[in-house]
């Protein structure tokens, strides 16, 4: 079996998402959905309900301390937001673990995920070229392939890192050369398995090189720029650090205004602390938020 096929097989070793995520997603596309019925889908799980209400009452989501029930959360914040939050609560326990191959100590992958989610959402809002909720979700999920490559496959990261150093090539290119695929493609496979909507899977698949997509939607460019900015700042940076190339066509397609990069970084940095604190106290949390030095 080739390494690539072996890796795709390992995608199936990652736990599936809880049923509630799929149910909610189905309801998101149903214009006749009843909110009380939908609330019940979430409320059968008390842990999820508590976590959802903590997030819904955060300053970031804009309803500080005013939301007392799931149904009210759906009414106030909208179904897409609630889906986004439930997805975050369900993915967090997997993403808050240390990711061995990438030297990501506990909670660092998650910190990068949430930072990129917030940056993507901010860019989508400011630029008005993509749905902010989609941008948040795609940003949050873009690096989940690292869970598979770093923890479920015994990929020899030493070889990948040596190749990056010797030839000065980007990390994803070295991944493709050594294992036949990269963490973006693996993430796309995993998200397919999790039945995440296709437009989000596409943004994740091309997050290091949106121009590789024949007809890139703004969502792809937004997630790419957000990822680059969050790496620049160092949120959840592992062994791959900033060892990627920027796709300049992305910036052209988005017609980025001056200062948008700095505005995004400043905006995310304030909200990120609150979000990381919330996730640290939610169910399944076990790791310290602060990156610790390795070796």
């Amino acid at each position: 079996m080739s390494i690539r096929r072996d890796i795709l097989a390992k995608v199936h070793a990652v736990p599936p998402l809880p049923e509630v995520v799929f149910k909610l997603q189905k309801y998101c596309n149903d214009p006749n959905v009843s909110y009380p019925e939908l609330a019940k889908v979430i409320e059968v799980d008390p842990g999820l309900t508590t976590s959802l209400l903590r997030l819904a009452n955060s300053a970031y989501f804009g309803c500080e301390g005013t939301i007392g029930s799931v149904q009210y959360a759906i009414t106030r914040l909208g179904l897409k937001r609630v889906y986004q939050m439930v997805l975050a609560v369900c993915v967090a326990p997997m993403a808050r673990k240390p990711i061995r191959g990438y030297d990501l100590t506990p909670a660092m992958l998650w910190q990068h995920a949430i930072a990129t989610a917030m940056a993507s959402e901010y860019l989508a809002q400011e630029l008005g070229q993509a749905e902010p909720a989609d941008a948040f979700t795609a940003g949050m999920l873009h690096d989940m392939g690292k869970i598979v490559l770093g923890n479920f496959v015994e990929v020899d990261m030493g070889k990948i890192r040596a190749l990056v150093e010797q030839r000065g090539i980007p990390f994803d290119e070295a991944e493709r050369e050594i294992v036949g695929t990269d963490h973006a493609s693996v993430a796309a496979s995993l998200l397919h398995r999790w039945q995440i909507p296709e437009r989000i899977v596409t943004a994740v698949r091309y997050h290091h090189h949106p121009s590789g997509c024949a007809d890139p939607e703004p969502l792809l460019d937004i997630v790419h720029v957000a990822d680059v900015l969050c790496r620049d700042v160092g949120w959840g940076m592992g062994a791959d650090a900033m060892l990627y190339r920027f796709d300049p066509a992305s910036a052209e397609r988005l017609a980025l205004p001056p200062d948008i990069a700095e505005q995004t970084m400043a905006e995310v940095s304030l909200g990120l602390e609150e979000m990381m604190e919330i996730f640290q106290t939610l169910g399944g949390a076990s790791a310290p938020p602060r990156p610790q030095p390795v070796g």
Binding site: M242, R245, F246, P248
Partner: peptide, 12 residues
Amino acid sequence: GSPLGPDEIFKI
């Protein structure tokens, strides 16, 4: 620092 290559436009 900065990403690989000369193309990153933000130059933070």
